[in-house]
Amino acid sequence: MRTNEERMNLIFSRAEEIQKEQQKRKQRWIEVGCVAVCMVLIIALGIGMPGIMGHAVSGSVTHNSGAASLIASQSQLGYIVVGIFSFALGCITTILLYRIKERRKDQAERKL
């Protein structure tokens, strides 16, 4: 038979395990949500960029000569914005996959 102290310790350890599982589940949803939001943002920008660039080209936007006008000309501005957001999505996806790999490694170590 177990003593009351042993039972209390088992109850507390099980409660801690349940809390950790809930935190992991919540963190997973946050990570998946961030990746989904980034993907939706990039797709929306990719779809809407021709219209946005059409308004910018038809407006009275002028560029002075210089280095900044080389990368901010109106024909390439849409590609620059989509490229930056795609890079951000790639970074977030890489971090997510790294965390998943570390989590699986930790779970494998716990099982052994």
Rank of each mutant, 00 (worst) to 15 (best):
5 E>P: 02
48 G>L: 06
104 R>T: 02
26 K>M: 03
95 I>V: 10
99 R>P: 03
108 A>C: 01
38 C>A: 12
102 E>A: 12
36 A>Q: 00
34 C>F: 06
89 L>V: 11
36 A>G: 03
60 S>V: 15
85 F>K: 07
87 F>I: 14
5 E>Q: 14
91 C>F: 11
58 S>A: 15
57 V>H: 11
68 A>T: 13
36 A>W: 01
89 L>Y: 05
8 M>A: 11
97 L>Q: 03
15 A>L: 13
1 M>H: 08
73 S>D: 15
51 G>H: 01
86 S>L: 13
109 E>Q: 08
1 M>Q: 06
15 A>C: 08
19 Q>P: 00
62 T>I: 13
86 S>R: 01
16 E>F: 08
44 A>F: 02
44 A>C: 07
75 S>W: 13
72 A>V: 08
101 K>D: 00
22 Q>R: 13
54 G>H: 02
109 E>S: 10
85 F>C: 12
73 S>Y: 10
35 V>A: 06
78 G>V: 09
40 V>L: 14
15 A>T: 10
91 C>R: 10
11 I>M: 07
41 L>P: 02
6 E>T: 09
88 A>E: 01
89 L>E: 04
63 H>N: 13
11 I>Q: 09
30 I>A: 07
13 S>Q: 04
40 V>H: 02
59 G>M: 05
15 A>Y: 01
33 G>C: 00
5 E>D: 12
33 G>F: 00
24 K>W: 04
102 E>F: 02
1 M>F: 01
39 M>W: 07
23 Q>V: 10
78 G>Y: 01
87 F>A: 10
60 S>F: 10
81 V>I: 15
61 V>Q: 07
15 A>W: 06
94 T>F: 09
94 T>Y: 03
84 I>T: 05
2 R>V: 11
19 Q>A: 10
104 R>G: 07
92 I>A: 03
26 K>Y: 00
43 I>K: 06
29 W>N: 08
54 G>S: 12
39 M>N: 11
27 Q>L: 12
110 R>Y: 00
40 V>W: 08
40 V>P: 01
10 L>D: 04
43 I>F: 12
41 L>N: 06
69 S>M: 04
51 G>S: 09
100 I>V: 15
87 F>T: 11
70 L>I: 15
69 S>W: 02
91 C>P: 00
72 A>M: 10
47 I>V: 14
36 A>P: 03
4 N>E: 11
9 N>C: 04
44 A>S: 08
38 C>M: 14
2 R>E: 09
106 D>N: 07
94 T>W: 03
58 S>I: 11
85 F>M: 13
91 C>N: 03
109 E>C: 07
77 L>P: 04
1 M>P: 11
4 N>H: 07
41 L>G: 09
106 D>Y: 07
99 R>W: 01
